[in-house]
Design a protein around this nucleic acid. Structure first.
Lengths: 207, 207
DNA sequence: CGTACTTTTGAATCGCATCAAATCTGGTGG
DNA sequence: CCACCAGATTTGATGCGATTCAAAAGTACG
């Protein structure tokens, strides 16, 4: 129960007093952190590994809302009656959890913490807006490039869980992704290195 | 400067002490509330009318990140160095504004307010995730139906600013929207009433 | 080694964007 | 009141790009 190493981000965000309440667990691929409709009791933080938030539509088609490789999961379910999606590990990893009641209490008590929490939510809003922008792009090529630019670091995007999962995130077929990737490599715009994609265009990193 | 009628949502959210700082203004179509890159000084609240948040891409293509008919604009830019998109009125309306410094101060002082602000941001996160889900749907039909279900009230979606603008929000061509709408009406799944779309399928509203 | 999964490439098909053009609408000024 | 214009709406025709179905080659793992 006592965490050995709290993720840095979490350590920076959470008040000291809260940190003993954090449970760290090693989870394997396929582990379900929670399901749609369940009443939220915990929030989670992905330290290593990858979680996808997905919704199962009417026809049983899974729609990936988000992949989290490092960061909070269900941070928006603080005061809702039910989780609004499923959270499933796509690769084994390490996940921290914290009871919602404890968190809510801390947010009502600790002003600084509330401020940091607001900043965190604000970044999340911005990130999601960027994702919406990406999804509104026509064409596989532009979506992929946008993703690498937006979510990557200096034009370098880690892809831990395979290109197939990446295709799902971009809401395109994996075939289309493989093809455009081959084309982009042939054009010299993108390179593949072990578990990452990196932009080669125009000498490193713009902006 | 003294507001005559503060929007209800805003009144419920903001502390009394803050409300005198709110400026109400009537704005006409095309008014730019702020532009990408500018340093955030105000946050806005749309009372009547419609604002689009949009980003102008590399080739000058405008991408609509969000339409707001009632609610906050730029609430995620509290502690950022620059607005991350443009905000433009698409129809004339009424917009309230509040200096960011005032707001930040209140958030650091008023615990209850901070809590309400957190709730507001959390809903926004959920709403944006729903929007991402929608954009990941294949097919104009499913996107439109998802929008009416998700954003509408009891299967009824108000469309203040015309179907063309709606098409932009769904990231589809307006022709495609007109066509699918005609089809859905022919099938009896959707009806058009003055400024709104409503689902007719399966007897009113499920869930 | 065999099984399961990912990656890759091919071919056929379909949906939507795009270009084009006609009709409808509200608003303006003569 | 009508002529006129700008924008929204609607329908048609065409082409491209992505999905889909199919199959082969590569890779990880027990």
């Amino acid at each position: 129960m006592a965490p050995h190493f709290l993720p840095e981000l979490m350590q920076a965000l959470l008040p000291i007093a809260l940190q003993p309440s954090v449970g760290l667990m090693q989870v394997e691929k396929g582990t379900v952190l929670f399901r749609q409709q369940q009443k939220p009791r915990q929030i989670f933080f992905v330290n290593h590994g990858e979680v996808v938030l997905q919704r199962t539509g009417a026809q049983g088609t899974a729609v990936v809302l988000q992949r989290i490789r490092q960061g909070f999961v269900a941070e928006a379910s603080l005061s809702t009656e039910a989780y609004h999606c499923d959270a499933v590990m796509t690769v084994p990893g390490e996940v921290a959890s914290l009871p919602i009641s404890t968190l809510k209490n801390a947010l009502e008590t600790d002003m600084d913490f509330a401020g940091r929490w607001i900043s965190m939510l604000s970044s999340e809003v911005r990130r999601l807006r960027a994702q919406c922008e990406r999804m509104s792009l026509r064409g596989v090529r532009e979506r992929l490039l946008h993703l690498i630019e937006t979510e990557g670091t200096n034009g370098r995007l880690r892809v831990a869980s395979g290109l197939k999962s990446l295709a799902t995130e971009l809401a395109i077929s994996h075939e289309a992704l493989y093809r455009i990737l081959a084309t982009l490599e042939k054009e010299g715009r993108v390179r593949r290195e072990d578990g990452a994609l990196l932009l080669v265009g125009s000498g490193g990193e713009p902006r």
